[in-house]
Amino acid sequence: MLGRIVEEYHNLFPVIFGEASECMQLVFGINVIEVDPNDHSYALITNLDLTYDGIVDDEHSLPKTGILILILCIIFMEGNRVSEEEIWEKLSFMGVHDGREHCIYGEPRELLTKIWVQEQYLEYRQVPNSSPPRYEFLWGPRVHIETSKMKVLEFLAKINDTEPRSFPLWYEEALRDEEERSQARMLP
């Protein structure tokens, strides 16, 4: 990349690279990690230690992990469950709408309610005793295995240029979750 940057912008490369890395993180859910500072080589790692690569159809598809991470954040921030209506309301701020094809994420309803449910990243269930039927999203079992509330909170803090303790209620919950995970690992 350095060799292709126009000479007059060469000194701005760190800023340009930083902005591009942040966009990769937010839009695609990919973190750019420097592997070798001498060689200027980098690795692309999925955020939150998720194993899902976000590619759902073919090799021309773009990673969809960014929107999955956003949904996981919303679920955590809303008390570990969120109504389907609220998810669509929040996603609409990103230009993602129920039933409308998105240039990066494709058909979002299928992605949320079928693909990620099948991959066990999301749980999509009917709210008990709701008439007419209403649905909600929760973290799926695979999320509980691959990541944690603390990692989600650290991600939220990073994108807000702060630290996890800046969100005291969520921080306390994430600490409790870490303690429970630690105790569960010690059980025979």
Score class of each variant (00 low, 15 high):
Ser92Ala: 14
Val96Asn: 08
Pro63Val: 00
Asp98Met: 10
Leu48Tyr: 02
Gly95Glu: 04
Ile71Asp: 02
Phe76Cys: 09
Asp53Met: 06
Asp57Lys: 08
Glu85Gln: 08
Ile67Phe: 02
Glu78Trp: 05
His97Val: 11
Val56Asn: 07
Asn47Pro: 00
Met94Glu: 06
Lys90Trp: 02
Lys64Asn: 04
Asn80Phe: 03
Ser61Cys: 15
Met94Gly: 03
Glu85Lys: 07
Ile71Val: 15
Ser83Cys: 06
Trp88Val: 00
Leu48Gln: 04
Asn47Leu: 08
Ile55Ser: 10
Asn80Gln: 14
Arg81Ser: 15
Arg81Lys: 15
Ile69Glu: 05
Arg100Val: 15
Ile55Lys: 14
Gly79Tyr: 04
Glu78Thr: 10
Gly66Gln: 01
Phe93Val: 08
Lys64Leu: 08
Leu72Lys: 05
Lys90Phe: 08
Asp58Gly: 15
Trp88Gly: 03
Phe93Thr: 10
Ser61Asp: 15
Met77His: 07
Ile55Leu: 15
Val82Thr: 12
Asp98Cys: 11
Glu59Asn: 14
Asp57Val: 06
Leu68Phe: 00
Gly95His: 04
Lys64Gly: 06
Val96Leu: 06
Leu48Asp: 03
Gly95Tyr: 14
Gly54Arg: 01
Ile69Val: 12
Leu68Pro: 02
Ile69Asn: 01
Ile55Phe: 08
Asn80Asp: 14
Gly66Ile: 01
